[in-house]
Nucleic acid binder design. Sequence first.
DNA 1: CCTTGTGTTCTCCG
DNA 2: CCGGAGAACACAAG
Length: 287
Amino acid sequence: MPELPEVETIRRDLVEKITGKKIKAVTVNLRRLVKSDYETFVTTLTGNTVTALERRGKLMIISLKKGGYKLLVHLKMTGQLIFLQGKKVVAGGHSFASMDFDLPNKYSYIIFEFADGSKLFFNDMRTFGYMKLADEAEMKKILATYGIEPLQPEFTLKNFRVALDNRKTSIKAALLNQQLFSGIGNIYADEICFAAGVLPQRIIATLHDDEVKKLHRASSAVIKRAIAERGTTFNSYIDAEGRKGNFLSFLKVFGRQGKVCVRCKTGIIKKAKHAGRGTHWCPACQR
DNA sequence: CCTTGTGTTCTCCG
DNA sequence: CCGGAGAACACAAG
């Protein structure tokens, strides 16, 4: 489940590897994962050159030299972007708990081969992810649906409050709403609420000023630390060097149901379904 | 059965 | 009856 920190980790690794590279060939083994016109997809990419890699929320945006399109990659739950030069894996994504997997493998649904012989594999076990081309007009529409994201200059306390203003829902549902805040998924939403000492189920209108402030600070702090630790490997995500992300050992509530709270040392972490997702919290020190 | 990110559909309310 | 918000569902596969 790559969220902002995982996608950013992949982006930072990949940007050095594929910027300036010419795409010699594109192989699509599962057309369903191409969410734009198939013929256009193949003809636009073949012979084109990667000029930049950006990210918005959980969406990877790859700029191309010719054709006026951007290549969008969404990893959804189990997508991977793995760069292979020779036999060495140098950029990763979501994998299967083990480093010793073959490339390509049965989940390698889209493969780019660059002019220098290196390759980029888009693997996706559950096939929720996609690649698509977007022209300038569509790009504008898509980006307009993304809210402010932690670590961007726009992510101010004031804008955080504005995004929450008049929402009738819980803080967790709001944090997961990509139109309000982009890049936060289920793991980090729970971790942010814990760091702020606020129950994920709290209705926004009941939050006090200091709690909103704590949630804002926690959002930046948790995401920043997670990027510094190259993301979270909960089930099977692997980082750019084929290693696990390190943030798992910093998780305070996610996946810790039934265990003693690391902060107050009295509460037992609870888990229940909220906002449609598995939600974790400490009943003793989150209010 | 469960898991999740997001797009779509349904439902509620003023 | 309308629009908007939010909840619920759909998707896929292990």
